[in-house]
Design a protein around this nucleic acid. Structure first.
Lengths: 122, 122
DNA sequence: CGGTATCCCTCGGGATACTG
DNA sequence: CAGTATCCCGAGGGATACCG
């Protein structure tokens, strides 16, 4: 009965997840795209705290990771529509659960997070 | 029929989640603690890629956010045991799902992630 | 409207060494 | 064994301006 040195199976799943969805705005982007908000301008409006540049970077990464894809319409003015791939769709249930969890405990979470922002000046 | 400017409910859940679980090792820590690996030294062994310092920082944040708590035994040598709070327990199902999703798609994910690391030298 | 380039700066996180 | 202090670095991300 050897102990496993590295519980590869479980551990790596979490590592991979982190690589793919731990950008500051990635879960938001996935969420909004899943809601049919497909155009970059719309996404930007829904996440005003993020700059256009960062949003594009993270969209590109999501594209590289094949969680989203886009349709480019060759016209003036340009028009682009993002959509979830099958892989992207497969992760949405979990992201929705995360969002719900955050909502459910929002009061508590807001409290502890604020503490983090204020205490430092002690 | 007004459009909602800010879909506060859903959006904020995701923001809060990010604040609480998006440290580099937080989901790993939660996972291992949930598996009964409660002592700092053991956690360290299971996450050798992380330094002791960072692990402690993230454990402290998880503590601040009240996802985990610890028991300190006043003895020599010292002994500390972390455990999940009710709030922490409540998020484990989702984290497990994340891990499973990562495992399920590990082949695909490893492929696209590697691409990210190699292409840049073009 | 969509995308990228440049610049800059914060801060998360790694290494090491020290205290209880 | 557990925790913290110091030092340092790179990446991630914000602002702005410019091409298609």
């Amino acid at each position: 009965m050897y102990e496993r040195k590295l519980p590869i199976q479980e551990e790596c799943g979490l590592d991979l997840i982190r690589e793919v969805v731990f950008g500051k705005w990635k879960i938001h982007l996935l969420y909004y795209i899943s809601q049919g908000i497909s155009r970059p301008g719309q996404l930007q409006k829904n996440i005003p705290e993020a700059s256009r540049r960062v949003l594009n970077i993270q969209l590109n990464q999501l594209e590289d990771d094949e969680l989203v894809a886009k349709t480019v319409y060759n016209q003036q003015p340009p028009k682009v529509e993002y959509y979830l791939t099958d892989l992207g769709k497969s992760i949405m249930p979990i992201i929705n659960e995360l969002g719900q969890w955050g909502d459910t405990h929002s009061e508590h979470l807001r409290r502890v997070i604020k503490k983090r922002l204020i205490l430092p000046e002690a």
